[in-house]
Design a protein around this nucleic acid. Structure first.
Lengths: 109, 109
DNA sequence: AAGTTGGTTATCCATGTGGCTAAGTATTGC
DNA sequence: GCAATACTTAGCCACATGGATAACCAACTT
């Protein structure tokens, strides 16, 4: 996809995928274990995993017949930073507004 | 949609929509001004705005023929919190692992 | 009153997404 | 070797998404 944020936010915009991420923060797990709590077919679930992997949120290795998946935390931090930055601009605007309000009588017609 | 996070992350998974949010952190603006920098047709752009509004990220009022849009910052904070929580669990796991490592000789067979 | 401006509504289209089943491959256990 | 396990690939389907045009309405401007 375009931006890294595109694929990240796209990946998080689904409850199944968020649940997988939540689970993986507690440590790696094989595909079958990740799939177990979700009431959808395995191939469908694999497509979700694929999307997480494409977004760089997750990595996996196969040993024998079992594929173990682990989280890649960096992208989470990138998105968190983006959101924090927006919030700071927003809050900064509020600050500037209140400062303006302080100086309202002299400055504004 | 399902969760509030669904519609939030869904809304952010598009560069046009993120650009609108970035612009709106600096203050409200009419639709035409928001649309100007984007090289897409107005009706297409309006669909993006609609999605932002559906996700509760933005609100708008119409006065005369001009509709003014302003940001609703709360959902940003909700998502930021969710991400921060994931990060804390992830980091907590690392902490526990290192603590475990400290106690490795006595505790582990 | 006529024209311009700022949105809005209605359709349409190609592609993406999330779901399924069926069938296949490769390990591992007996 | 055979069966069970753990994915994997292929194909199908309904609906959502992001894009477009055309036509419309309402409110200013002149």
């Amino acid at each position: 996809m375009d931006n890294q944020l595109d694929s990240f936010f796209g990946a998080m915009a689904d409850p199944t995928r968020r649940a997988v991420i939540e689970r993986l923060t507690q440590g790696p797990a094989p595909v079958s274990e990740l799939h177990a709590p979700h009431d959808i077919a395995l191939p469908t679930f694999l497509k979700h995993l694929r999307k997480l992997e494409d977004a760089g949120l997750v990595r996996s290795e196969k040993r024998g017949r079992v594929r173990t998946v682990h989280i890649e935390a960096a992208p989470l931090a990138v998105a968190e930073d983006w959101l924090a930055r927006q919030r700071r601009v927003w809050e900064g605007r509020l600050d500037r507004l209140s400062h303006l309000a302080d100086r309202l009588p002299p400055d504004v017609s």
